[in-house]
Nucleic acid binder design. Structure first.
Lengths: 78, 78
DNA sequence: TTTAAATGTAAAGTTTACTATACGTTAAGT
DNA sequence: ACTTAACGTATAGTAAACTTTACATTTAAA
């Protein structure tokens, strides 16, 4: 499974960024070329982004994919 | 778009690895939990892996996602 | 306390990743 | 030349990512 820090990162941007409206779900969605629904579902963990979208997100936040998304092997979960 | 070094990396493993059969398309597919078709299509660039699969691939090769997959913005291509 | 921006929820439809199956081609060993 | 492992191609089907639309809830400011 994949866990992500999307919501936390975005909310931090909302607080700290000069142009906070750039970091609303809608603002981010626009720049990423996806819908707000897609942002919501990713933040909730309903589904994982495609690799392309993961790259775009990492680029928007100025970090590496691994800084936002973490893979956890759960093949043998109790 | 995304370009990847999958085929090169795998072929290098075929030559250099002790157990070369681990790095055939089929051997790799088995360990990744996908079909050989999936490997073929990724190596051809027919489609991109999901983020989960990209993580698994990076793990198998012992590198970061960014070492295998590269994102290239092609929104304004001539 | 109303207004509006931001967030949340739900459900049906489209696109793309991935499977399953089957058969053809290449390369290397014997 | 024959065999066989590895690779390639094609195509129909399933699953998951993503869109579209519509409406409901929260939050903060006027």
């Amino acid at each position: 499974m994949i866990v992500n820090k999307l919501k936390d990162l975005r909310e931090n941007k909302m607080k700290q960024a000069e142009r906070s409206e750039d970091w609303t779900q809608e603002g981010l969605a626009l720049r990423l070329g996806v819908t707000r629904q897609t942002i919501i579902s990713m933040e909730k963990g309903t589904y994982n982004p495609s690799l392309v979208l993961a790259f775009k997100i990492a680029h928007e936040f100025g970090v590496a994919i691994e800084d936002i998304f973490e893979y956890r092997d759960d093949t043998n979960e109790s």
